[in-house]
Each structure stands twice: as structure tokens, then as C-alpha cells.
Design a protein around this nucleic acid. Sequence first.
DNA 1: CTAATACCTCAACCTAACTTGAGGTAAAGC
DNA 2: GCTTTACCTCAAGTTAGGTTGAGGTATTAG
Lengths: 145, 145
Amino acid sequence: MSEANWTVGRVAKRCGVKVSTLHFYETRGLIQSWRNAGNQRRYKADVLRRISVIKAAQKMGISLEEIKQAFSTLPDNRTPTAADWQTLSTWWRDDLDARIDYLQRLRDSLTGCIGCGCLSMKNCPIYNEDDKLASEGSGPVILDR
Amino acid sequence: MSEANWTVGRVAKRCGVKVSTLHFYETRGLIQSWRNAGNQRRYKADVLRRISVIKAAQKMGISLEEIKQAFSTLPDNRTPTAADWQTLSTWWRDDLDARIDYLQRLRDSLTGCIGCGCLSMKNCPIYNEDDKLASEGSGPVILDR
DNA sequence: CTAATACCTCAACCTAACTTGAGGTAAAGC
DNA sequence: GCTTTACCTCAAGTTAGGTTGAGGTATTAG
């Protein structure tokens, strides 16, 4: 099999994902393929690394949309080099550091917080993480208790 | 307002969630209410803490189903005490420790891994984390962003 | 007493990330 | 050449965690 002749089935098996997942990633613009004479997908070998990177990023909690954004920084007209991938990993590492840090702060305030009854109060560290990572919805309302 | 006369609207406002969320949590068995003569929901004050705990647990990446399981260990016939909640927080703290540990290992192998090309190989640490957190439910753990 | 809110139920809709299935074609094995 | 396996497209289904809206009732403020 030449460098540019990977079939969906082979890629799927090699990467441990389903064929439907590869179709799906393609519709989302995360991977590309060319078609042979019979309209079947064929991939270049670098798709393997892309998929691996997608899977790794997902384990870090990164969404497909964000992965797509990150991929858009890769070179268009040539196969990404190790250095190109390295750049991505550095970028995500910071993200991962932030997530870890957030969870650690959450952990450190957890024991005191859940038990003590402060959860609905304005000074609760869990409720008031001054952190974009934590912000969701409209947030708690300060009331007495 | 007596201890057992919280309306949905008040609870929602106090906790920073929507009324529909409270309805939803009720259908999932996460909170309970009683009805007044006009069929409107009324809550006991302890629902406030339940909701706070749900929110805190979600930030740790715990699913509603798991939260429900944890709640099932709370006493049925009396309002949970601080000690009861403390037990839960200890339980989840271990969970959180495991998640942090997992992310740290992921981070430590990331730089070497994404760049080096080993990602699709059998011995790649990212691909072979022997970790249940990495494979629980549908996809990776969801974290706040 | 009346109008403005607040609630109620139930069904449908939403996003993410896929999976499943139907109906049909291509490629590969013997 | 024939049969099995691999692919193709497109639509619809799935799970989590909610949100939105319609049509109707209860409560509350003035």
C-alpha cells in the first residue's frame, strides 16, 4: 500500500475507531480524503496522526470544534512535520495545565465546602471560582442562610 | 416563609438555575418536592444544598446519574446533616484526585507524544492509559471551559 | 375584584459526538 | 465469474443535560 492509499476500513482498524467516525470527522472538516475511480475514500498516511491527535485532545476535554481550530494552524500545502504537531501540543498543554489547576483548586475547597453549608453563600470558593473555566449559566445569587 | 415552603421560582433564583432545570432534576430523581393545594411545587430548605452539591459535582465532571447514586446513600427519613454531606465530599474527592492524576499523566506524556509520532503505536502512553476515567460513558470527561 | 405574575404539564427542540440502518455500488478472493 | 466483504450516501436515532413554547391554572399585588 502506497503512502496515499489508505482505505477507510484500514484507517479505522489501525486507529481503533469506526468507519462511521471517519465519515463524521470528514463532514466536520477534521480530516480529508481523496476518492478513487469508484468513489471510495483514500487517505494519505498523515491522517493517522491527525486521528491520534484528535483522540488525545478529546481526552484532555477539548471539543472537536476547538480541535478543528487548532488544526487550521497546520500547514495547508504540506504534510505537517513533527515540529508542527509539537506546536499544537504546547498550545494544548497550557490548556491542560489550566484544567488541572482548576480541578485542584476545586478539590482543595471541596471538603470544607460541601460539608460546611457555605455552598450557597457569596464567599464559597466552589461557587465563586474567579475562573472562566468555572463560569456557566447565570451563576449563583447571593443570599443569606 | 416557613422551612418547607420554598417555591420553584425562589429556589431557582437563589440557586442561580432555571425553573425548568428544577423540573428536570425532579424527573431525574435528584430532588423532591411536595405539592400545595393548587398543585404547585413546594420545597424544604434542604433542596438548596442539594442543588449546590449537584452544581459542585458537575464541575468535577460527575454526571447526574452518578450524583443520583451518591445521593441514594443519604438518609431517607431525615434531612441530611453536615456529616452526611461530608461523606459524599470525601467520596468525590477520591474521584477528583483520580481525574487530576489522569490529566497530569496525560500532560506529562503529551509533549513527547504528539510530536514524536508514537501516537498510533501500541506503546503510546496516551493511547494506552489504563484508566477507567478515560473510557467512561460516551467519550471523554466533560470539563468546564 | 382584577390584572399581572408565577406555576403546571407535555411535547418538541438543542448541541455534541457519534451510531445505525436502508438501499445500492465497488473491490477482492477463489 | 461469482460471492463475499468493503464502501457509498443520506436520514434518522442515541445520550446527556437541559431549554422553549403552547395552552391552561394558581397566586398575589393593588
